[in-house]
Write a protein that binds this DNA or RNA. Sequence first.
DNA 1: GGCAGGGCTTGAGACAGATCAAGGACGCTC
DNA 2: GAGCGTCCTTGATCTGTCTCAAGCCCTGCC
Lengths: 255, 255
Amino acid sequence: MPNIGNLDGVPSVAMSTVISIRDLKTHCMTCSMRELCLPVGLEREAMHQLDQLVSERRRFKRGEPIYSAGEPFAALYAIRLGSCKTTVLAEDGREQVAGYHMPGDLLGLDGIGHDRHGCQSIALEDIEVCVLPFGQLEELSHRFPPLQKNLHRVLSREIIRDHNVMLLLGSMRAEERLAVFLLNLSHRYHDRGYSATEFVLRMTREEIGSYLGLKLETVSRLFSRFQQEGLIQVQGRAIKLLDTAALRQLAGQHG
Amino acid sequence: MPNIGNLDGVPSVAMSTVISIRDLKTHCMTCSMRELCLPVGLEREAMHQLDQLVSERRRFKRGEPIYSAGEPFAALYAIRLGSCKTTVLAEDGREQVAGYHMPGDLLGLDGIGHDRHGCQSIALEDIEVCVLPFGQLEELSHRFPPLQKNLHRVLSREIIRDHNVMLLLGSMRAEERLAVFLLNLSHRYHDRGYSATEFVLRMTREEIGSYLGLKLETVSRLFSRFQQEGLIQVQGRAIKLLDTAALRQLAGQHG
DNA sequence: GGCAGGGCTTGAGACAGATCAAGGACGCTC
DNA sequence: GAGCGTCCTTGATCTGTCTCAAGCCCTGCC
């Protein structure tokens, strides 16, 4: 893929990360994530307005922050492509991964509460996000109640997700945590049209461990054990789920 | 206190838990929690409308659920008096306390996401809540942008709170968790006009443990140790913080 | 006043997961 | 394709927290 940020000999300082969305003819209407993202269920006009609102699209390379803790909050970010992690920092420097995000997810919801980002989101691979200036989004959601409803749902679902992570961290054993994690990824890849049983992890063992409240060695050992037991096949970051029923059993999900 | 639900010989079946708020001359305007609750910063008219919206006030005895998992979501509940715990249930029956709530807190936010409550809130002592029908609240917030803003903030702050609990559960040791817990309670009591250093816990050791991802024996031992070290004074559920600086140190808060 | 039951404390021992340590695999860059 | 750094695996040992167990202290009830 050509470096889209450096067409026409335009100096690349700004262009390498900031691209006018209209120039690229990208619209919510035709975005493959529209069913998972904010526009879900909106009528034509509302979706069009939302399109207009997306002031720009930004790209980040692996390791770059989409936003950082302490920054003034101005916009939400909808992932179009790629994935990232959100981390909370303790005062003493300890870092906790609070979530992994993929296309269709909305980032930065924690910034609304105090007009300042409370955590940071870091790209795990090259990523592209739509920038949704929050003031305008509130205004627009004010004119289109279904959009308001969607925004409320997104916020509430993040709370539900967080509660489930608490359940995981507070009362599950290591093997259960990892099983839940793998099944959750599987489910989300499936929702996005990818294989539910074969995928490539975008994060290190240490990052998985941080999310699950475990050390990287424990994660590594569990992967090995799951493989030995025939539950999964691991090769570095490439994962194949071989026995999802058994994984669900382990995860305490009798479904 | 007389049984307010049974005045005038009215049959008490409904009246024992449902009271028209207007009859009792209770208004957001005069509520002592207005600065911590949804009405914060609203102009007269908006606050009046919010008052009108509060369809009823309900009372629950200790142990009663304000709402339960699986119930259709219809309303948010603002605590006027008393406190409760919110618990998430795993499919296998395990229970995790996801939060403790006190006057001014809004309950039921997790219900918005799927029009159904995903967890339950149980009264820890006799409690009184204002019922805010959510459909009407959305409509009203649509007419009063500052109210919409407040709602967004409340939702976002719950996310921030949850992230901090994840940090606690995922990367802190037992003693740090308990220190954080005590300081958090202290802070919230202070905000509500109570002593920041002397308060009575409303929950059992087991419930504290569930919230902190610890067993009740561990919580008990830590209380004893903190007392021995002169950090606190414990007598059953009565707590006195003696050395908040040391507690903050323990909690990793250098403030 | 005695008794029952829930909640709390404390001790001893077990164990899951952390820590420490060493080496291997993989993917960069030059 | 050599060399380096990051990430990963695996083993040995350690330890914080859990588990099991016993007894105490309230509070409410008969």
